[in-house]
Computed example of a mutant assay.
Amino acid sequence: MSFMNETQPSLDDLVLFASVAQAGSLSAASRSTGIPLPTLSRRMAALERSLGRTLFQRGPKGYALTADGRTLSAELTGLSDTRRKLERWLAAGDDSTPVRITAGFWTSRQIARALPPDPDRAWQPRFVPANAMLDVARREADIGIRNAPPDHAWLARQQLAPIQFAIYGIPGIRGFVASLPDVPSQRWLHANYGDAIKASASDPRLCLDLAEAGHGQIVLPTFVGDGLNTLARQSEAIADLQHDSWLVVHQDARHDPPIRAAIDQIVSILMTE
């Protein structure tokens, strides 16, 4: 005689399972959810026990979904989004909903400076670090501004105005201020004018402060440099640095009213700068 397992699976564990299935590995899901790896492993084992099904094939290369695991993953499509919307609604109360934005420093600065304060706005900006494009796919951010269109099928995209760069400085000042060569504009500067770098800082805002104080010229996006009263453009647009710009958002979130409102305002800012 057999008995049905009367222990109901935890909704929290089902949400975590959906995260593991979407992330493709336990370690990636641990990073995206903030749940320690040992805890996540125990939760998945508890879920299997409560369901009486084997959801994972465990091997030296990590966890892979079984046939039952793949079926359950398909059934849970949208569960993480529903849970996230509920959490945002509970956290927001009567206030506006936080919308997480990931973009480069200068783009984030431009959005922050151009976004008018509005106590009645349905969303509030929450800037998060500009990490990999996959952050948006894993819902670690709601809106991302990227230099290339996404290659993930579940990411929607909208092309923005192209980005140009030029050299800016106080007339008569020679040499350059640089930051770390971890973005294309700074790699270009180090490659072409490395011997002329007179000052450096890891913080782009501090680099601008140094240039405004006369320590050297600086390479800036034209949407930043052309709006400064303290520095003048010292070059034409640098052809090697021009690139496209894209707004990306998870396709399941783009019609969420706060995110839709944020998209409209951000596009309005970045298409006119």
Rank of each mutant, 00 (worst) to 15 (best):
R113N: 11
E140S: 13
V219D: 11
S245D: 02
L270K: 07
D195Y: 00
D182W: 00
G52K: 03
F165R: 04
G172S: 10
D203K: 05
S179C: 06
G62P: 06
E140W: 04
R83A: 15
L37G: 08
R43H: 12
L55S: 01
M44E: 05
L180S: 11
D195I: 01
T222N: 08
S25P: 06
L72Q: 08
L76H: 11
M44T: 01
A161E: 13
R113F: 01
G78L: 11
S80T: 15
S235D: 00
Y193M: 05
L210E: 04
T97D: 06
S10L: 10
S96C: 04
G216L: 07
I111T: 00
P171F: 08
E6P: 05
A74M: 08
L51T: 09
P162L: 09
P129V: 08
A23V: 05
G104F: 04
K85A: 07
A74Q: 13
V249R: 06
G104E: 10
E87S: 13
H152A: 15
P204C: 06
A122C: 02
A261Q: 15
E48W: 09
T77A: 15
D13W: 00
R43E: 08
M4Y: 06
A253Y: 09
P60V: 03
A191F: 00
G225Y: 02
V219N: 03
Q158H: 15
P36K: 07
I111E: 01
D13C: 00
E48S: 11
N147Y: 10
A262L: 05
A156P: 00
W106V: 11
P9E: 02
